[in-house]
């Protein structure tokens, strides 16, 4: 029982982190049709900036609030000057371009902050442990478990009740129609891309107290996020939530029960879902 609950919590906390990253990825794909390879690097930048703010002002919260908007600002430049010329062209060009951006950013942080691993401490409020049966469980992980659904709820409210959210959903569903009814698509695209980047960086800042900050930390997470997005259904918001949960839980239970398969599990899941529901769990019928 104790092990089971611990596995649930482990899976949830990892899943929620995945969710934050995937939800940005899926929104960007849903609205813009862009598969952003550099999304993981934006996650990494979020972590590095958070670390830098902690060094400057000594507060994790400042890093959490101030870092992601900076990444979003950078991504506006990225979208405006690099991605925009590619919209008429094949998706593979976007993949290649964002891959180039990823290489650039990964090496860029190494040149700025050095190749060493960095450690960010959780804020005082969230450090420490609470008793958990005969063992203990870190507060910060519980924080992640709770924060995930909160962010999800906030996003849902944003998409359902605000003007911008409604425009976004409309554009994701039918871009042309949105354009006809007067949505300024270029502005919308920039906004969506920045929003996705903000979410990725938020995920990075939240991950910083949890794992070592180092170059290439984004490369590791990008493929798992792609899988989450695809099994949930491209562009689907509840899909990203469900996909992240499934992947997170499968990760923790797989480690315990089928260690030999653990590395292949996400891919097996991916194949099974795509072959039975070709548009993902929440993607509608193909």
């Amino acid at each position: 029982m104790e092990g089971f609950l611990a596995n649930v919590l482990n899976g949830l906390s990892w899943g929620m982190l995945l969710f934050l990253i995937s939800v940005g990825l899926t929104t960007v794909f849903g609205v813009m049709g862009v598969l952003n390879f550099a999304h993981g690097s934006l996650f990494m930048l979020g972590a590095y900036l958070c670390m830098q703010f902690v060094r400057w002002v000594g507060s994790f919260w400042v890093g959490l609030l101030a870092g992601p908007p900076l990444v979003a600002a950078l991504s506006i430049l990225l979208e405006r000057f690099l991605l925009r010329p590619l919209y008429g062209r094949d998706v593979s060009f976007q993949l290649l371009l964002t891959f180039g951006v990823m290489l650039f950013l990964d090496d860029g942080v190494r040149l700025i902050w050095g190749p060493a691993y960095h450690v960010v401490n959780p804020p005082a409020l969230l450090s420490g442990v609470i008793p958990f049966f005969s063992q203990s469980y870190p507060v910060y992980r519980l924080f992640l478990v709770i924060l995930g659904p909160l962010v999800g709820l906030g996003l849902w409210a944003f998409f359902s009740f605000t003007r911008w959210g409604k425009i976004l959903r409309a554009a994701a569903m039918d871009r042309q129609m949105a354009e006809i009814v007067g949505v300024r698509v270029p502005v919308l695209f920039t906004a969506v891309f920045a929003f996705g980047a903000w979410l990725a960086a938020l995920g990075g800042a939240l991950a910083a107290p949890h794992q070592s900050v180092g170059p290439a930390m984004g490369e590791r997470i990008i493929i798992e996020s792609f899988i989450v997005v695809v099994i949930g259904g491209m562009g689907s918001f509840p899909g990203a939530f469900a996909g992240a949960l499934i992947l997170g839980l499968m990760n923790s239970f797989g480690t315990t029960f089928v260690p030999h398969l653990q590395m292949a599990l996400p891919y097996i899941l991916l194949a099974v879902i795509l072959l039975t529901r070709p548009r993902g769990l929440f993607g509608g019928e193909a």
Binding site: G100, V101, L103, F104, D106, D107, G108, R110
Partner: peptide
């Protein structure tokens, strides 16, 4: 040894310059 940053930048330029 910072080959990635150059390769990345060159890739970006090539993608933009050669449709």
């Amino acid at each position: 040894t910072s080959w990635m940053i150059f390769l990345g930048a060159i890739l970006v330029v090539l993608v933009l310059a050669f449709p």
